[in-house]
Design a protein around this nucleic acid. Sequence first.
DNA 1: AAAATAAGTCAACATGACTGACATAAACGA
DNA 2: TCGTTTATGTCAGTCATGTTGACTTATTTT
Lengths: 194, 194
Amino acid sequence: MTDINDHSLSALKSRRANRDRGFDDEPRVKAASDSDLIGMAEMLFFAYRDFISDPDTDLSALGFGRAHHRVLHFVNRHPGLRVADLLDILKITKQSLGRVLKQLIDQGYIAQEAGQADRRERLLYPTERGRALAERLITPQLERIARALQAAGANGDQAVRDFLQTMVGSSERARVADLIAHGRERNAKRWTPS
Amino acid sequence: MTDINDHSLSALKSRRANRDRGFDDEPRVKAASDSDLIGMAEMLFFAYRDFISDPDTDLSALGFGRAHHRVLHFVNRHPGLRVADLLDILKITKQSLGRVLKQLIDQGYIAQEAGQADRRERLLYPTERGRALAERLITPQLERIARALQAAGANGDQAVRDFLQTMVGSSERARVADLIAHGRERNAKRWTPS
DNA sequence: AAAATAAGTCAACATGACTGACATAAACGA
DNA sequence: TCGTTTATGTCAGTCATGTTGACTTATTTT
């Protein structure tokens, strides 16, 4: 995977200066807020790409991928989660989940047991091994977020939280907020930015 | 795709209340900032999922997918982009790009021409058709973002921008900022939240 | 007892990414 | 001038993760 080199972006700039004359039909100062929106969209794309890439090496070393991470994460956050709950949170099919879940169970990261009130259900729990892995996978991600929140400034946390919450579709917003509010806490020491 | 029903989340809550006794080794008030970080991570996951889902129906109707959208978007933002530039921005292989790009070219959304300074290069331009499509695909996404920025409050824009910029890995940050700063503006009317 | 439900499995397919190899045209540098 | 390097394109195969459809078993509900 090659680096972006300065040459290529500089070339992009000078090339743009020469070629955009025919495309701009309004002066640059015009659409500042539109530019902000597109900029935000692009930043979100790049930000998320880096965020989800953090655990990849660890995952790959275990023969796992991002789907495994997601499953493990939410089971760890909500021990006792039913399969149907997980399907609903992740918005994937049971076939898709089944493949990944089976691997996590077979390899000892997740345990399952039949429900007591309803024996059809399968309740999912992280094993100690699973909790340790979930912790290891999320740590770099949380470091990234903590760093970014620091950059957001004194009241930035709230703004970012409001932004992200509102980015979630209105029909899901309350449910997502509820899910997040009731997730099991980490046992790790409190992380502080270095 | 079934809805999350209130029953299932309430069951989750009461089940947690009964089952977490054995897992919590510290009172809930303890890890507030860790909980914030994990909450942010989860919100980012859900937010991004909704954000990238916005154009899916339109894309699917054309027999396209998200990869097509990404390619079209960046070509539209940077007319005259070289293939190598695109590879670098998207961080994918040329084989991966080739498949999608060929379809966009074949179907008239992107035009390409050899460079003048270096005839080996292929410079990519959106056609009128491509620009219209790029506009159509991104509009709901920008609406989502504008809405979310409004929720972020008076100075929220800056906090969110700083957050997202810092979420991008430090080695890429300046380049991403530069790329965004030099993107071609939209020609659409300014969007205002309803 | 019949119908509905939770989960599990089989199978095939799609999207979008990867690796490796090879080819052609163009540019570069000795 | 010529050998080397570079930009792009293509072929081929593989993989991760998602989808659809169908079917099964055990359990719960009506």
